[in-house]
């Protein structure tokens, strides 16, 4: 579904991603783990073309997306949920969802405002409230719901568990598993190993913009030195 090939990404002169490559198969949920500053968000943005890799290619399905504009990437069915949430604070919840709306796609589950309100009942109650009045957890749900309105095939979830209450984290995990059941492919970045293990089939660990590990959680447990080196704070 996604194929990242030897990408190198920069912020100005700072070299953030270093020859990074990985594949994600259709229907898989993959967790990208690593410390703050390891390059997780940059990887997400480099797939979405919000940061343009200087060298290397990114494929989504059969399309090479590494020369496309972000809106074209989104149109192909890649949904991006940013870490900072970036909801439109002056727009109501309903309007936020409207921004994300795209025509349905035959190979992906189809979402509507009503279905999403079933998945996120809190949002329904506050549908006419402005984005700025929402709590952190509600904002996180709105961001996911907004992206789902585009009927994506694949979700890029940047640190979904960050900054929200523990109860909601659990709810978030259920939501992601529900999305998986619907057939969505998910790449999520995480610092919370516990959360990642709950939802993901596979772990990719990056550090200093390079891939250090790419295998199942069982394998990760079997290699405590890797866990120690790249995940402990």
């Amino acid at each position: 579904m996604i194929k990242v090939n030897n990408i190198n990404s920069f912020y100005g002169k700072a070299h953030i991603l270093n020859n990074l490559s990985f594949d994600i198969a259709g229907g898989e949920v993959v967790a990208m783990l690593g410390r703050n500053g390891a390059g997780k968000t940059t990887t997400m943005k480099s797939i979405m073309q919000l940061v343009r890799p200087k060298t290397g290619t990114v494929f989504f399905k059969e399309h090479e997306i590494s020369r496309m504009a972000p809106h074209q990437v989104a149109k192909l069915g890649l949904g991006y949920v940013p870490e900072e949430r970036r909801i439109f604070t002056d727009l109501t919840i309903l309007e936020n969802l409207e921004v994300g709306r795209q025509p349905p796609r035959k190979d992906a589950p189809e979402w509507s405002v009503d279905i999403l309100f079933e998945l996120f009942p809190n949002l329904h109650e506050r549908r006419n409230n402005r984005g700025k009045t929402l709590s952190g957890g509600e904002q996180q749900m709105l961001t996911i719901a907004r992206t789902l309105m585009g009927n994506p095939l694949c979700l890029l979830l940047d640190e979904p568990s960050e900054g929200i209450a523990p109860v909601i984290v659990e709810q978030m995990a259920k939501t992601i598993l529900e999305l998986k059941k619907q057939g969505l492919t998910v790449l999520l970045s995480e610092q919370n190993l516990h959360f990642a293990r709950m939802v993901a089939d596979r772990a990719i660990i990056i550090e200093g913009g390079e891939k250090r590990f790419d295998d199942t959680f069982a394998q990760l447990e079997a290699q405590p030195d890797i866990k120690e080196a790249y995940l402990s704070v």
Partner: peptide, 15 residues
Amino acid sequence: RAATQDREMVGALGV
């Protein structure tokens, strides 16, 4: 209105 606030995000949503 959404673009007024965050045009990059609007682009990332397919617009």
